[in-house]
Design a protein around this nucleic acid. Structure first.
Length: 843
RNA sequence: GCCGAAGUGGUGAAAUGGCAAACACGCUACGUUCAGGUCGUAGUGAGAGCAAUCUCUUGGGGGUUCAAGUCCCCCCUUCGGCACCA
C-alpha cells in the first residue's frame, strides 16, 4: 500500500471497475423497494465547472446511500440537448449544431461526470435531440393535439429580436428575454401554437398543498405565478350601441355602485367600435403610442395615469347609470377581459386616474356605513359597510359581494368568475435546433397532424445553412418542406416552427423508466413501478419554468391514461448556487464563464481528486444554501482524506486490521475505558450519519463533521493505546468509518475497503454493501454533566452517572458548594429538574 | 406595494425550548525538518485579570417561559419571487 493518498492512482481505476461490474444498474420491477433519484439533466454547453458539480454530487450521495440501504435505485442521466446556444455556436464556429452538441455530450459525460465518480445507470441515457427520443416528444404533442390541449391561436406574444423567435411568458424576466437581460421583448400579435396549461391552473395551484416534500419558497413561487383571483365578470351594455357589451373582471363586485367610468386596454378590439368620430384622432394617436412601448417601457414608466375618452358610454347594470368609456394603458389586454370598471373610491389606481381626469369619486363602502365627512383622501381598500348602494346599503361588504354576484347572475348582468394570471404556454419557436412540430399545412384541408406511423418527423441535418437571416433555415429546405398531405394526398408543407426546448425536458424523467423502448413512449408496468420520482435535486432557477411544465405534462398524460400519478416529484431539493469572487464585477457572484469566476473540474480532480471536490461541496454549507467556493477549504478536505489514508495505512502496517472480522458489533463489556469510548464514538457516528443522510434536509455537512470526529477519536485512541491487541475493535471502527463515508467519498472508501480485505473479491464493492446498523444503547453516554442553574444562569456543572432520579439531583444541587454560595440564604421559589440534563433553582 | 427565506466568532458554519459556537478554514505555539512545505499535538468568540475566575455575546426593541439563537409581536438589513393583475 502506498503510504500517501494518491487519488490520481485510484479514482479512474474504480470508475472503470464500477462500470464493468454494472453495480449501478437499476432493475425494472424488482421486488426490492424502489427509489427513483433524479437530478436535473444538463444542457450540453461543453463544460461543467464546480458550480455544476455540486448538484450532481448531492444527488449522487443520496442515490448511493439509498442503494446501500437496500433500495432498488434508479439514478439516470441524460442531456437537454436542443436549444438556441447550439445553433448560435454553430453559426459562430461553422459547425453543425448536432456535431457541436454530440461532442459536448461526449466530453461532459466521459471527462467530467464520470470523473466525479457518479453512480448513474448509463444504459438509460437519454438525449433529447436524438430522433428516438424526440419521436416520442412529437407523439406526446399529437396526443395533446387530439385531446385539445395543443391549439393554434392568435395572441399577443413576446418576441426576442436577439433570439429571432417568440418566447413563453415564463421566459420573460423583467420585460426582457431570459437569455438577454439587455434586450427588451417586443409585443406582437401572431398565430402560434400553445399548450393549454391553463386548463390545469386550478389543479396545479390546489395540489401545491400536497407537495409536503417541496421547499416552501418553490411552492410560493408557483402560487404567485399561477396567481388566482376570485370575483365576478360583469356585463356593461354600451349606451350608443345597444348591440354591444363590455365585460369586465373584478375582484370587488361589491364596489359596483361606485363605478364612475370604464377603461379599455389600448389593444382591446372594442376600442375601434366604441370610439366616436369626434374622438377618433386622439384615440388613434394614443393607441399608436402605446403600441410603440415595449412591455419593459410600460412597466418602468412612471405610474402617472394617461388616457383618452372614446366618446361612448356604458350602462351600469346595477343602477342604470351611464358612465364614460376611456382608453388607458394601465389596463392590460393579457389579463382578464382587457377592460376594467373604474371605482376611484376603492382602488388606488382608479383613484389616481380619477384625480387626473377629474372623474367623480363615489364612496360605497366605509368602516361605519356612513360617508366620510370631509371627502376621501385615498382609496378605501378594506372591508366595511355598504352605502350609496341601493338595496345593499347597510350590509357588510363581504356579504354584499356574494349577494351582488347572485343578483348579477339572476339578472344576466354578470357571473362569478375566477381569474388566473397563468397564461397558455406558447411553444412555437422560429428556430432550427429543436423538435419539429409534427403538423402539415395543406391548402385544401388546412392543418393536419402527421400520422403516428410516420413519426418521427426527422429534423434534417444534411444541407442546412445557417445564415442568421430570413428566419429558420427550415424554411429553405425545400425537399424536407414539401410533403404529401396526410389527408388528401395533395402537395402540402411541413410546419417549420420547432418546439420550445422546455417541452423536451417536461417528460424526460418518464422516458428514463424505459429509455430504449422502440415501440412505446414507455411501458405501463415500468412507469407505474418507478414513478413518481422519490427525490429530485436541481437549481431554484427552475422553480417555475421546468417544474410547472412537468407538473402540467404529468397531469395531461395522467388524463390520457398513460401514468397514474399526478405529481411527478414527491420530494424536491433546491440546492443553492455556487458563488465565487468575480474579477469582472468585483463582487461575489454565481460561478459562470461570463463573470470570469469559474473553477474547472479537471484541474481540481487532477490535483486533489474527485473525493475532495465532492466533500468540499457537501461540507461547506447545507445543500439549500449558497456556497462560496474556497480553494483553501477545499484543500482541507484533501487533507482529511489523507488523514484517513494514513490511519488505515498505519493500522494495516501494524497488523491491526483483521479482514475476517465482520461482526455487527463488539461486546462493550470486554473493553477497557478507552475502548468503550471509541466503540461509543463508532455507534454515535453511524447513528448521526444515518440520520443526517436520511432526513429531508440532507445534512451532508454535519454528516462529514461526524466522520471527522470519528477519525479524530481514532487518532487519539491509536496514540494513547498500543493498537496491537485491539484489532477487533479497530477493524470494526475502520470498517464502519469506510461504510458511512462511502456515499460521499466513493473512491477512497472503495480502495481502502479492498486494501483492508473487507471485499469478498475483486468483483465486490463497498457500494453494494449494506448500510451499517448502530446499537442505540451504546450511543448513550453513561457519565454525564449535570448543569446546575440559579434563575436559568449556569452556576456549576457536575459529573454524575446517567439515570439520577429527580430527588437525588435536587439534593446534589443544594449540596453543591457553588450553588450554596450563589443561593446564600435566599428563599427557594421553585426547583426545575430535567433528568440527566440540569437542575434550575428559582429564587 | 404583496408574498417568501435569511441575519450566530476573523471565515464557512453547528445547536429535538435546556451547557451558544460542534466540525472545518485561517491564525498562534510546540514537536518533526538544515529550512520551507507536509505531518502530529495544543490553543484560538469579546472584554477584565499574573491566575483561579468574573462579565458580556446569536441584526435592534419588546414579550411568553424556571429557561429563548430557537416560540410570539414590532422594527432594521440582505437575498429571492410577483407587481398598473383590476
Amino acid at each position: 500500500m502506498a503510504s500517501q493518498y494518491c487519488p490520481q492512482e485510484i479514482d479512474e481505476k474504480w470508475q472503470q471497475r464500477w462500470e464493468e461490474l454494472g453495480i449501478y444498474k437499476a432493475i425494472d420491477n424488482d421486488s426490492k423497494p424502489k427509489f427513483y433519484s433524479l437530478v436535473m439533466f444538463p444542457y450540453p454547453s461543453g463544460d461543467l465547472h464546480m458550480g455544476h458539480m455540486r448538484v450532481y454530487t448531492i444527488s449522487d450521495v443520496i442515490s448511493r446511500h439509498r442503494r446501500m440501504q437496500g433500495f432498488n435505485v434508479l439514478n439516470p442521466m441524460g442531456w437537454d440537448a436542443f436549444g438556441l446556444p447550439a445553433e448560435n455556436a454553430a453559426m459562430k464556429r461553422k459547425l453543425h449544431p448536432e456535431s457541436w452538441t454530440k461532442e459536448n455530450i461526449r466530453y461532459m459525460r466521459d471527462e467530467q461526470l464520470k470523473k466525479l465518480g457518479t453512480s448513474y445507470d448509463w444504459a438509460r441515457e437519454v438525449t433529447t435531440c436524438d430522433s428516438n427520443y424526440y419521436r416520442w416528444t412529437q407523439w406526446i404533442f399529437l396526443k395533446m393535439y387530439e385531446a385539445g390541449l395543443a391549439v393554434r391561436k392568435s395572441a399577443p406574444v413576446n418576441w426576442c429580436p436577439e433570439c429571432q423567435t417568440v418566447l413563453a411568458n415564463e421566459q420573460v424576466e423583467n420585460g426582457a428575454c431570459w437569455r438577454h437581460p439587455e434586450t427588451p421583448v417586443e409585443q406582437k400579435q401572431m398565430h402560434q401554437w400553445f399548450l393549454k396549461i391553463t386548463n390545469y391552473a386550478e389543479e396545479l395551484l390546489a395540489d401545491l398543498d400536497t407537495l409536503k416534500g417541496w421547499p416552501e419558497r418553490v411552492r410560493v413561487m408557483q402560487q404567485n405565478w399561477i396567481g388566482k383571483s376570485q370575483g365576478a365578470e360583469l356585463f356593461f351594455k354600451v349606451k350608443e350601441h345597444p348591440e354591444l357589451q363590455v365585460n369586465v373582471f373584478t375582484t370587488r363586485p361589491d364596489t359596483i355602485f361606485g363605478v364612475s367610468y370604464l377603461v379599455l386596454a389600448p389593444e382591446n378590439p372594442l376600442v375601434a367600435k366604441l370610439t366616436t368620430p369626434e374622438c377618433k384622432a386622439k384615440v388613434d394617436e394614443y393607441v399608436e403610442q402605446s403600441k410603440k412601448k415595449t412591455e419593459l417601457d410600460r412597466m418602468t414608466a412612471e405610474k402617472t395615469k394617461t388616457g383618452v375618452p372614446t366618446g361612448s358610454h356604458v350602462i351600469n347594470p346595477f343602477n342604470g347609470e351611464a358612465v364614460p368609456v376611456l382608453v388607458s394603458d394601465y389596463v392590460l389586454m393579457s389579463y382578464g377581459t382587457g377592460a376594467v370598471m373604474g371605482v376611484p373610491a376603492h382602488d388606488e389606481r382608479d383613484f389616481a386616474f380619477a384625480k387626473v381626469f377629474n372623474l367623480p369619486v363615489t364612496e360605497v363602502i366605509s368602516a361605519s356605513g356612513s360617508p366620510t365627512t370631509d371627502g376621501l383622501k385615498a382609496a378605501f381598500l378594506e372591508q366595511g359597510v355598504m352605502l350609496n348602494s341601493g338595496e345593499f346599503n347597510g350590509m357588510g361588504s363581504a356579504e354584499a359581494k356574494l349577494k351582488m354576484i347572485a343578483w348579477a347572475e339572476s339578472n344576466k348582468a354578470g357571473k362569478a368568475h375566477t381569474q388566473f394570471r397563468l397564461r397558455d404556454w406558447l411553444i412555437s419557436r422560429q428556430r432550427y435546433w429543436g423538435c419539429p412540430i409534427p403538423l402539415v399545412h395543406c391548402e385544401k384541408c388546412g392543418i393536419n397532424p402527421v400520422p403516428e406511423k410516420s413519426l418521427p418527423v426527422i429534423l434534417p441535418v444534411e444541407g442546412v445553412e445557417f445564415t442568421g437571416e430570413g428566419g429558420s433555415p427550415l424554411k429553405r429546405m425545400n425537399d424536407w418542406l414539401t410533403v404529401d398531405c396526410p389527408k388528401c394526398g395533395g402537395t402540402a408543407q411541413r410546419e417549420t416552427d420547432t418546439m420550445d426546448t422546455f417541452i423536451d425536458s417536461s417528460w424526460y424523467f418518464l422516458r428514463y423508466v424505459d429509455a430504449k423502448n422502440p415501440e412505446l413512449v414507455f411501458a405501463q408496468d415500468k412507469v407505474n413501478y418507478w414513478m413518481p420520482v422519490d427525490q429530485y435535486v436541481g437549481g431554484v432557477e427552475h422553480a417555475i419554468l421546468h417544474l410547472l411544465y412537468s407538473r402540467f405534462f404529468t397531469r395531461a398524460l395522467r388524463d390520457m391514461g398513460l401514468v397514474k400519478c399526478a405529481e411527478p416529484f414527491t420530494n424536491l431539493l433546491s440546492q443553492g448556487m455556487v458563488t465565487m469572487y468575480s474579477p469582472v464585477s468585483g463582487r461575489i457572484e454565481k460561478m459562470s464563464k461570463s463573470r470570469g469566476n469559474v473553477v474547472g473540474t479537471l484541474d481540481f480532480f487532477k490535483k486533489y481528486g474527485a473525493d475532495a471536490a465532492r466533500l468540499f461541496t457537501l461540507f461547506a454549507a447545507p445543500p439549500e444554501q449558497e456556497l462560496e467556493w474556497n480553494e483553501d477549504s477545499a484543500v482541507g478536505q484533501y487533507r482529511f482524506l489523507g488523514r484517513i489514508w494514513r490511519l488505515v495505512d498505519e493500522l494495516l502496517e501494524k497488523g491491526c486490521i483483521d479482514s475476517k472480522q465482520n461482526a455487527v458489533t463488539i461486546d462493550s463489556e470486554k473493553l477497557d475505558a478507552a475502548g468503550k469510548a471509541l466503540l461509543k464514538q463508532v455507534h454515535k457516528a453511524i447513528k448521526a450519519v444515518s440520520t443526517d443522510l436520511g432526513n429531508a434536509h440532507y445534512g451532508f455537512n454535519t454528516a462529514i463533521a461526524r466522520c471527522m470526529e470519528l477519525v479524530n477519536a481514532l487518532y487519539k485512541y491509536v496514540q494513547e493505546v498500543n493498537p496491537q491487541g485491539h484489532s477487533a475493535l479497530l477493524t470494526f471502527a475502520i470498517r464502519n468509518l469506510l461504510l458511512i463515508i462511502a456515499p460521499m467519498a466513493p473512491h477512497i472508501s472503495e480502495e481502502l475497503w479492498h486494501l483492508c480485505g473487507f471485499a469478498s473479491g475483486a468483483q465486490d464493492s463497498i457500494h453494494i454493501s449494506s448500510w451499517p446498523q448502530f446499537d442505540d444503547a451504546l450511543t448513550v453516554d453513561q457519565d454525564i454533566e449535570l448543569v446546575l442553574q440559579v434563575n436559568g444562569k449556569i452556576v456549576n456543572k457536575v459529573g454524575v452517572a446517567r439515570g439520577l432520579d429527580r430527588q437525588s439531583a435536587e439534593d446534589l444541587a443544594f449540596g453543591d458548594d457553588k450553588m450554596k454560595a450563589k443561593l446564600g440564604g435566599a428563599q427557594v421559589r421553585k426547583v426545575i429538574v430535567v433528568p440527566d440534563k440540569l437542575v434550575n433553582v428559582v429564587i
